[in-house]
Simulated scan of single mutants.
Amino acid sequence: MSSFIEAEEFIRLSSHIPIVDVRSPIEFAKGHITKAINIPLFSDEQRVVVGIKYKQEGQQAAIITGLELIGSSFADKCKEALKIAKNKELLIHCWKGGLRSESMAWLFETIGIKTYILKGGYKSYKSYIRKSWETPFKVIVLGGYTGSGKTEILHALQRKNQQIIDLEKLAHHKGSAFGALGQEEQPTNEQFENDLYDVWSLTNHHQYLWLEDESQSIGRVRLPDLFFETMNNAPLIRIQLSHEIRIHRLVNEYACFNKEQLSLVINKISKKIGSLLAKNMIETLYKEDFAIVASLLLEYYDNTYEYSISKRKNKQFQCVTLPNDNADGNALLMMESIKNIG
Rank of each mutant, 00 (worst) to 15 (best):
M1C: 01
S2Q: 05
S2T: 14
F10G: 06
R12G: 01
L13H: 10
L13T: 13
S14G: 08
I17V: 13
P18N: 11
D21E: 08
V22F: 06
P25T: 03
I26F: 07
E27S: 11
F28G: 10
L41H: 05
V49R: 13
V50A: 02
G51Q: 14
I52E: 09
Q59W: 04
A62V: 06
I64F: 12
I64V: 15
T65C: 15
G66M: 03
E68H: 12
C78G: 10
K79I: 14
K79P: 00
A81S: 10
K83C: 09
I84Y: 08
A85L: 06
W95N: 09
L99E: 12
S101H: 07
S103F: 08
S103P: 04
L107N: 03
F108N: 05
F108L: 09
T115D: 01
L118P: 09
S124A: 14
Y125C: 09
S127T: 11
Y128N: 06
F137L: 05
F137R: 12
I140F: 00
V141L: 04
V141G: 00
L142S: 01
T151E: 02
E152H: 10
E152L: 03
L154E: 07
L154V: 01
H155P: 04
Q163P: 12
E168S: 08
K169S: 15
K169G: 13
K174V: 04
A177T: 04
G179R: 10
G182N: 04
Q183F: 02
E190H: 10
T203C: 12
H206C: 02
Y208Q: 10
L209Y: 11
S217C: 15
G219Y: 13
L226N: 05
E229F: 06
A234V: 08
P235M: 03
L236P: 08
S242M: 06
S242C: 04
H243K: 14
I245C: 02
R246S: 07
V251S: 09
A255N: 09
F257V: 09
N258V: 10
Q261V: 03
V265W: 05
I266H: 00
I269D: 01
I269F: 11
K271Q: 15
G274W: 05
G274H: 12
A278K: 04
A278V: 07
N280F: 12
I282H: 02
Y286C: 06
A291F: 01
A291M: 08
L297Q: 06
E299H: 10
D302W: 02
K313N: 15
F317P: 01
F317Q: 03
D325P: 01
D325S: 15
A331C: 04
A331W: 11
M334C: 02
S337I: 03
S337W: 00
I338P: 02
